[in-house]
Design a protein around this nucleic acid. Structure first.
Length: 616
DNA sequence: AAAAAAG
């Protein structure tokens, strides 16, 4: 067994250990994001790949192609009506209720961009500038549903409004990513949407832009009910499964809505509620929240959902799984929220099992299904290694991996390592063990105080504590730049969780490494894991294949098999006849399947042959 | 059996 990942990385150019060999065999394939990328400094990309692309890299800086963008933003120069609608047109009734006038409110608004690049000076590289957005054209996209609006190619084509366009520019978004190209026009026409999408390519923006734009154009921001001055009436609700993810979405949304009339507030548990209540009292258009705290706020009658026009569920499959479903139903169906068809509902996730799609249909009306991306273009950025490690050997094996990383020297600071364990107790004890052995580690899990959780995440992100031990609280959605290595110290039981965990690395077009410790207790994962690896062009160890054959022999089920390949969720469950009995028209209209079904042209057809994404 | 989400 090759001792370390760094060893295999060093050998990668010539083909060395197992990992390197598997990688070398794939050198001809260049993921779409990386085509035409400028040469990469190998130090920034410890785990592989950079070398392989050197031959095809041309000095083609994406931002140099600013033509369409510059033109796009300027073309909005005459569209004062959009901003005017929000700021002055609606100002009399809406914005004046807050802080005595919109200009005063604006003066007070903290600049959400000011910490960009300051908090992490050593990570000065612009995340976006390395991505060739044009190359995204190759990603397969599938849409279905009635009357799907065509995608756009530039932000300029979309009527988002001046203020939002300026913020898009501030975010250095040059061009819409595939999910944005498709989801934004769909959302702007008011249609409900179920999107299998990739956060790394701008998922948050894909649902935030239409919401912000829609609120601005309506000129109804931050309305208050004079009779109930202490009750907040948000126009949009964004729910997410963890507090940290809600915080992250809030930070993003604040950037997008900077210097607009749109007010974004976040509410989550573990933090003092009084400050959140004060924020809500000052007016809120978009409420980002975790379910528990929102229920609390609803019970206290401090929030009413009666004005909700937009509902977005991030990590929607998680939000609708067993643990969350009752709470979500309570919020969405049993309070005062307008029903489907009145409000607009947007569901986003990378993984969307058919069972969950069926549940989700309860919340949607005549929706469009959208799937973006596939195995070959994302997961291949992550080198997956599975090692057979007995429970008793895990710590010393982990120590070997970390020692090797440390030996890499200076770059080790940037090579953040995220270690997933199964239990909160396990996280605590592993963190403690790492620390007493001289490794700068911290941990995040649900038994730590919210203060500790946020501090741990900050400390990790900044590189101060380059090792983070985490439970699944950190598995989904969190965008942590510079995670070079994800170690599944304990493998999860659900292959979806594995996909989300390893997706914390290899983001924004960078490469990543994912190592997992496998032993007999993970037998049930063998088959789905081997299948997933095969689908993403990873080298599957022979012993794992044997394990998979053995464990699936006894009738071990996995979702991949059930869903007919394509655990990515790349198919609309409405097309599956077993979910569509008796000729019932699941599309919600009078049209036939043929009319209702729309393959977006030019993408070379389906990819039902098992598609997954390591991005969210 | 465990994690997450209210206090």
């Amino acid at each position: 067994m090759p001792a370390t990942w760094s060893e295999s990385v060093e050998k990668a150019p010539t083909g060395g250990g197992v990992g390197a060999a598997s990688h070398a065999s794939r050198t001809t394939y260049v993921p779409p994001h990386l085509r035409n990328r400028p040469p990469l400094a190998s130090a920034d990309h410890p785990p592989s790949a950079a070398v392989s692309y050197a031959g095809t890299l041309a000095g083609n800086e994406p931002q140099g192609k600013g033509g369409p963008v510059a033109g796009g933003f300027q073309s909005y120069g005459s569209r004062n009506d959009i901003n005017g609608g929000g700021l002055s047109g609606g100002g009399g009734s809406a914005s004046n209720n807050r802080n005595g006038g919109w200009d005063r409110g604006r003066e007070r608004e903290a600049n959400p961009f000011q910490n960009d690049g300051v908090a992490e000076p050593e990570f000065a590289v612009q995340e976006n500038s390395g991505i060739n957005f044009d190359a995204y054209e190759d990603i397969p996209v599938e849409t279905s549903g009635k009357d799907v609006p065509p995608p756009v190619n530039t932000f300029a084509e979309i009527d988002l409004g001046d203020a939002l366009n300026i913020n898009i520019k501030r975010c250095k978004y040059v061009k819409p990513t595939p999910v944005q190209r498709h989801a934004i026009p769909i959302s702007l026409t008011g249609r409900d949407l179920m999107a299998c999408a990739q956060t790394g390519s701008g998922k948050t923006a894909a649902f935030c832009f239409p919401i912000i734009s829609g609120i601005m154009k309506s000129g109804q921001s931050a309305q208050r009910q004079p009779r109930m001055p202490r009750m907040a009436f948000p126009l949009a609700l964004i729910l997410s499964p963890t507090r940290e993810l809600s915080i992250q979405i809030h930070e993003e949304a604040r950037k997008f809505s900077y210097q607009t009339c749109v007010k974004v507030v976040v509410a989550y548990g573990g933090a003092p509620i009084n400050q959140q209540l004060r924020e809500l009292e000052r007016g809120v258009d978009i409420l980002v929240a975790t379910p528990g705290r929102l229920v609390d706020l609803l019970e206290r009658a401090r929030v009413s959902l009666q004005n909700i026009r937009y509902l977005a569920l991030d990590e929607a499959d998680r939000m609708l799984d067993m643990g969350f479903e009752p709470q979500i139903r309570r919020i969405v169906q049993q309070m005062d929220m307008p029903p489907p068809g009145v409000r607009q509902t947007l569901l986003f996730s990378a993984t969307f099992p058919k069972e969950i799609q069926r549940l989700a249909a309860d919340f949607l009306s005549n929706y469009i299904f959208l799937a973006v991306g596939r195995v070959g273009s994302s997961t291949e950025l992550i080198l997956q290694r599975i090692e057979y490690v007995l429970e008793t050997d895990k710590r010393s094996h982990l120590m070997d991996l970390l020692h090797a990383q440390r030996a890499n020297g200076v770059q080790a600071k940037q090579a953040l390592t995220l270690v997933f364990v199964e239990t909160k107790k396990g996280a605590d004890s592993l963190e403690h063990w790492l620390c007493i052995n001289g490794f700068p580690a911290t941990s995040i899990h649900g038994d730590r105080t919210q203060q500790e959780r946020e501090y741990a995440l900050r400390s990790f992100k900044s590189g101060k504590t380059p090792i983070l031990v985490a439970t699944d609280v950190a598995a989904r959605g969190l965008d942590i730049p510079h995670v070079a290595h994800v170690i599944n110290f304990d493998l999860p039981n659900d292959i979806d969780d594995y996909v989300h965990r390893i997706g914390r690395t290899g983001r924004a077009g960078k490469t990543g490494l994912a190592t997992a410790f496998f032993n007999d207790s993970n037998a049930s994962l063998a088959k789905p894991l081997a299948d997933l690896m095969q689908e993403s062009n990873q080298e599957v160890p022979a012993w794992l294949t044997r394990f998979a054959a053995r464990s699936s022999f006894g009738g071990g089920r996995n979702r991949r098999g059930q869903s007919g390949g394509g655990r990515f969720g790349g198919r609309d469950f409405r097309k599956d006849s077993s979910y569509n009995r008796g000729g019932m028209d699941m599309y919600g209209g009078g049209s036939s399947m043929n009319n209702g079904y729309n393959q977006s042209g030019g993408y070379g057809g389906g990819y039902g042959s098992a598609v997954t994404s390591a991005w969210d």
